[in-house]
């Protein structure tokens, strides 16, 4: 197909391959699990990041990960409930 630029999802997966190296030096299961959460967070808001269409991939990834974390914090026990 005639796409010139990779989609955000493709660019994200490509960038996250680099993160594998980062993960290799994590030493505890807790850290590895937390790292997987970050990965999931990066993927969760792909639709929204695509919509922004920012040329800055990292900006989109950060927004996605931070939104995911903030949503988790808000829905954690003891915190005000996030909207569904």
């Amino acid at each position: 197909m005639g796409r010139t630029a990779p989609t955000y999802r493709q660019a994200l997966e490509e960038r996250m391959k680099r993160w594998d190296e980062f993960a290799r030096l994590l030493t505890t299961p807790e850290e590895r699990e937390a790292f997987e959460l970050v990965r999931t967070g990066a993927r969760r808001y792909a639709a929204q990041a695509t919509y922004v269409g920012s040329p800055d991939l990292l900006e989109s990834i950060l927004l996605s990960v931070l939104t995911d974390l903030a949503a988790r914090i808000r829905s954690a026990p003891g915190e005000p409930r996030a909207r569904p």
Binding site: R3, T4, A5, T7, Y8, R43, R44, A46, A47, T50, Y51, G53, S54, P55
Partner: peptide, 21 residues
């Protein structure tokens, strides 16, 4: 042929529809 344009414009333009997870 497709005209030349700046990379950031191309990234901004070359997108599909909204697809949620």
């Amino acid at each position: 042929p497709e005209g030349f344009r700046r990379g950031d414009r191309l990234v901004a333009a070359d997108r599909g529809g909204v697809i949620f997870l």
